[in-house]
């Protein structure tokens, strides 16, 4: 019985977190905020659900595989978020109009796709700002 309680509470919290990730994805106003919601609430939720399965089956083979998957999820979620965020910034996806500060602005070099610590002036052809409007209200 104790095992069922643990499994069910892990499942409930995990499912709730994944639901929050979905709701956040729907409600947040721009891509970067949406990724904030999905990349961790999603992977943490999935991790908890997998942990529930580990507690339920109590088998070493399953435990090893599930734990490896949890580690994999936690290693890859940040990488995926970084890659999508970077690609989206180059693609010209605007930030929400309520964003108070954008330190990335002008730091990417368009020709080389390198990220510099010194900002390129916005009138430079190398600056992304010459191509896209970063913060607009949609």
């Amino acid at each position: 019985m104790a095992r069922e309680i643990v499994v069910m509470s892990l499942f409930l919290v995990g499912a709730f977190l994944m639901f929050l990730a979905g709701l956040g994805l729907l409600r947040m106003p721009d891509l970067f905020l949406r990724m904030s919601a999905t990349s961790k609430a999603g992977s943490l939720g999935a991790g908890l659900v997998l942990l529930g399965a580990v507690v339920f089956f109590q088998d070493w083979g399953i435990t090893a595989r599930a734990l490896a998957t949890i580690v994999f999820l936690f290693l890859t979620a940040p990488v995926a978020a970084h890659m999508i965020g970077r690609a989206a910034y180059f693609d010209g996806v605007p930030l929400w109009k309520g964003t108070v500060r954008d330190d990335l602005r002008g730091h990417y070099k368009l020709s080389t796709h390198r990220l510099e610590t010194q900002a390129t002036p916005p009138d430079d052809k190398e600056s992304i700002d010459a191509v896209v409007q970063r913060i607009d209200d949609h």
């Binding site: 979905g22 999508i84 693609d91």
Partner: peptide, 17 residues
């Protein structure tokens, strides 16, 4: 397009759940 990619990513995590 990146919004849709993020949505697909979350959908597959949900399917996993």
């Amino acid at each position: 397009l990146p919004d849709r990619v993020v949505a697909l990513d979350l959908i597959s995590i949900l399917v996993m759940g």
